[in-house]
Amino acid sequence: MIVSIASGKGGTGKTLVATSLAFSLQDTEEVQLLDCDVEEPNDHLFLKPSITNKEAVCIPVPKVDASKCTYCGECARVCAYKAIAVLAKHVMVFDQLCHGCGACSYLCPEHAIYEEGREVGVVESGYAGKIEFVQGKLTVGESMATPVIRKVKERINRHKTVIVDVSPGTSCPVVESIKDTDFCLLVTEPTPFGLNDLILAVETTIELGIPRGIIINRSGMGMDIIEDYCRQQRIPVLLNIPLDIEVARLYSGGVTLAQGMPRWKSEFYKVFAKIKELAGERDSCPQR
C-alpha cells in the first residue's frame, strides 16, 4: 500500500500528517516514509532519522568530443529545450536547460557526443526508530525537482506501508510524486485559500485516477466550506484536526502530533484503516 500526502496549498499540514501517520503505524506495520518534497524536505526535522546512506542524483548532460564534431548542428536541432547552440567552431551546452533525454547523443551522426552526470540533488536514507526513511534534496539553485523525486521513488518497497510526502502545488513535482500511489490523502484547511487549492488538488488526483480522501487541519476556524464541498463531491473526510495552539507549539519545536499527543495515534490508525478500505474500492469521485 502506497499512500501519498498532498494538498495544493502549502502549509496546511502535510508534514504533520505524514510524520504522524508514520509514527502511529510503526508499531503494527512495516513503514517506509519517502519525503518527495525535495525542494523543502521537512520530515527529517520531526522524525530525526539517522542517515546512513547518501546517493547523488545526476542527470546525464551532453559533452562534445571536439575531435569528432563537424559542427553540423544536428544536436541543436533535435534538442527540444534549446540547451545546445552550435557556432562555427564551438558547441555551447546549457546544462541548466538540459532534461537529459539523450536525443543529441543518440542522433549525432558523428557519435561525437557522450554524456556525463551532472549532480542536481541527493537521496538520503536511514532509519528513524522502526521507520525506514528516504528523502530527496534538490541542490539550492537547481530548478528540476522531478529527477530527484524519481530517484526517491525508486526506493519504494511495495511490501511495506509506504507514505509519500508531496510538495505543495499541482504541477510536475506533484504529479511525479503522487502517480502510481494507491491512495492520495489531501490535507486542507477551512479557509477560502484552502478550498480553492483543494479543488485543484482533487482534480489532479482525478486526472491521475487515484482514490482520495481529505484531512481537515485547523478545523473550527469558522467555516464549513470544506465539508460542504466534500459532501457535494462525495469525497470522504477521514479526519478533523482542530485548531489548537498546543498543536502549533509542538509543531513549531519539531514534535509531530502523534508523538506530542499520543492519543492521536489511534486516530491516525483509524485513518489508515479507512484508507485501506477506500483504496480497495472503485474510484468514488465523478469523472470530469
Binding site: G10, G11, E39, E40, L138, M144, A145, S167, G169, P173
Partner: peptide, 11 residues
C-alpha cells in the same frame, strides 16, 4: 511567489 526553491521559484 510560489513555495519551494525549484523551477517556478527561480523563474
Amino acid at each position: 511567489g510560489p513555495p519551494g526553491i525549484g523551477c517556478p521559484v527561480i523563474s
